[in-house]
Design a protein around this nucleic acid. Structure first.
Lengths: 338, 338
DNA sequence: CTTGGCACTCGCCAGGAAGGAGTGCCAGGG
DNA sequence: CCCTGGCACTCCTTCCTGGCGAGTGCCAAG
């Protein structure tokens, strides 16, 4: 176990390195933080910390830099989430209050997060699989062609074109629409399959094919996880990464473009509470020099989606975590008001 | 007027510079292109081209680099759009054919363009203002709260929540829905205002308020240009820009995040035919060292939106233009089939 | 366990020299 | 009149070198 002071030294190293982006040496440490001990002592502590793998030297005779393991310890034990200032909180609320629809909420959230953290922000759209049905609409486009529109309680709208095996009359359509809605409105998606399974039976034989097709399209839409969308923003902040650019920034941009990667990333995070994944803890290899701070948000007590930021492992964890948490909270409120 | 050979020299310079990213000298030119003249002659031609402002020297005793004006001449007079190879065309078609809905079409198009051109791709969603109404749906969320859903012929769906001044019954709602649809389905957006202006009159006094509110929300949705959405992709390709990174890449990333900027950019392009804006021809100052190649696309003969790529002024214009044109053509086909 | 001292390691930063690509100009030839 | 080869010149780039300084590890003493 590390002594109290050694932890203090680690904390100081992380803080300084995050601030200066330069390896930090023993002398500078004692000057900037009043550790009440001499540089020589700090050197011994540093040697011990290095031995344990919390810090490393880029090369002999350079200062120390925290390792992923060091950041991990820092985040777990040494850092307090830094709450936002009152003006910041007000600004968040004001900005989010101006949103007119779901796209707008998500868009504003992304911009907000990116601005507050000065990092890349990622916001997942409220997930279909955890929300409930507000309405299902069926429209006739052509005699044997329907459009299915699904509206969720989070305000999300999904539409699909359905090609029917046989023409389907307007009255049957109204009938189906009414029955569908009376059964599934207000229900969670996971319940829907059980609630509509017997619907085809109550229709004439020649209409059953169409009804079944519509239902399977509906269920497909509900299940389809690949349809989970997200929005990212603040990629310009990547340019503050370091100066050895192309190599650092490129894989990150590539990873960010792969929505699948990001969704997986967010999916791996805990459902409740904040998750911080540091460096190599991220499975994707383009993101091994980044950290991801994410948290679930939702309109009620339950999370319906996640949001977070992606930044260099050398980031201001307390501040970032504070911003992420605050934004998630306010977005949840906004969604609930709807 | 420049002699034929000098134009040829300019073309060679552009081609070489695009390939090597390095200033090109007279000797290398005569070797790589069989110009049938000596380096000394080329030097004279280069001096003339420089005099006219088509090329420039980064510094004395370096090779020449094309200026914006040089690229402009190249694009206007010297370059042929390079058609894609048959396999490439097949690949495009196959890839786009797999799309399931509008979002998917646009998403695939972006990825395709980014991959083909190895640059940043921008695709505007089919514009509301030029398309026609396929259906308007009205749903009752609460006694005095409606949801308005607008579906366009391009498959785009917009929804708005409408707060009514007074409760609005289900029968009135059905009535309004039916009348609205019978009047405006199939009409272009620009026609809609004139077609619905007298609708409130045919309703009871206490319902007129609601009807008017619904109508104005509808018209708002139709007009609202800020709602024009677009998708971008291939930002990772920015890392191939040069090596003086942060300064070059940053403003571009920032500009790309501002959808307004991009929409304006695309809006400035000609409605028909391909538009190439080179370097300082782009109004936005973050994009003065980039070129934008854009073209309209649409389901019929008329363009409903635009797409294009953003890349360094030093780009392969013939190839890029070929890819952009081809992709636009195929996307148009896909939309038309719908 | 802490501290000051001390030798040592290396990365970083001028400063200078060598190399080379490219130019401009000029005089001669078709 | 235009093209060509030759030549001197410019100036960027690269490499090397030496000095500087930050930082370390180790040691002996308190």
């Amino acid at each position: 176990m590390l002594s109290e002071r050694r932890l203090e030294v680690l904390r100081a190293i992380v803080q300084d390195y995050v601030g200066t982006e330069e390896p930090v040496g023993s002398k500078a440490l004692t000057e900037r933080h009043n550790l009440q001990v001499s540089p020589a002592t700090v050197r011994n502590d540093m040697a011990a910390l290095e031995e344990e793998g919390y810090i490393a030297q880029p090369h002999t005779s350079a200062g120390r830099v925290p390792t992923d393991k060091g950041y991990r310890l820092f985040v777990d034990k040494l850092a307090d989430v830094k709450p936002l200032s009152a003006p910041e909180r007000r600004a968040i609320q004001n900005f989010l209050d101006g949103a007119v629809d779901l796209d707008d909420v998500v868009g504003r959230t992304v911009r907000l997060l990116a601005q507050l953290t000065r990092q890349v922000a990622v916001v997942q759209y409220p997930s279909l699989s955890r929300s409930t049905v507000r309405h299902v609409e069926l429209l006739s486009l052509a005699p044997a062609r329907l459009m299915l529109v699904l509206i969720t309680d989070t305000g999300r709208v999904e539409q699909r074109v359905v090609d029917c095996p046989a023409p389907f009359g307007e009255t049957s359509l109204a009938d189906l629409r009414a029955r569908l809605n009376s059964r599934i409105v207000g229900q969670r998606f996971s319940e829907v399959p059980g609630l509509v399974a017997d619907l085809p039976e109550s229709f004439d034989l020649e209409e059953r094919g169409t009804v079944s097709t519509v239902l399977s399209t509906l269920l497909e839409t509900l299940v389809e996880e690949t349809e989970e969308r997200l929005m990212i923003g603040g990629t310009a902040n990547l340019t503050r990464f370091g100066q050895d650019f192309p190599l650092t920034i490129r894989p990150v941009l590539e990873a960010l473009e792969e929505q699948v990667v990001l969704l997986k990333l967010l999916g791996e995070a805990k459902d409740s509470g904040m998750t911080v994944r540091i460096g190599h803890e991220n499975a994707h290899e383009g993101l091994t020099s980044t950290s991801v701070v994410s948290v679930g948000y939702g309109s009620g007590d339950e999370a319906v989606a996640k949001l977070g930021v992606v930044g260099p492992t050398r980031m201001d964890y307390p501040g970032t975590m504070g911003a992420v948490r605050a934004v998630a909270r306010y977005v949840g409120q906004i969604l609930a008001e709807n």
